[in-house]
Design a protein around this nucleic acid. Sequence first.
DNA 1: GCCAACGTTGGC
DNA 2: GCCAACGTTGGC
Length: 153
Amino acid sequence: MRYWLMKSEPGDVSIDDLAGFPNQTVDWYGVRNYQARNFMRDQMKVGDGVLFYHSNCAEPGIVGIAEVSRLAYPDRLQFVEGHKYYDPKATPENPRWFNVDVKLVRKTRLLSLKEMRETPELESLRILQRGNRLSITPVDPREWNFIMKLLEA
DNA sequence: GCCAACGTTGGC
DNA sequence: GCCAACGTTGGC
């Protein structure tokens, strides 16, 4: 069992969008970075914990807890010609991009990027490291537990 | 909109 | 395989 932080732009899929989706589940489409893909394809298991993070918006931060609800499978959009996420080098026989399904556990208060930066216990969070741009990053169990406590408060 | 940081592409 | 050019991310 691992823990992850997954960024989503609320203009694309927000926590409220997720809450309104059938089964409160979304296929995590559109990842086109190999490191992030590898995390999904090679490491994520059903039941892994997910911090749902709003990025590229007015109030960036963690807004909910979710879980991996389906193992990685080929991202359908890589095959859709003309789509933003189309990849001409991908074929159904040899897909390049994968996604898991993510299911909402519960919405939380906003744990803002600012607050995380001001919290010494979270210094080691990957997302806070200089220059980090990865949309999916592993979260240490200690970091996860600490964040769970912060979100209860 | 700016721009630092970083990933990808493609000529050589 | 190098590396300059270009594209993207994402906070501010």
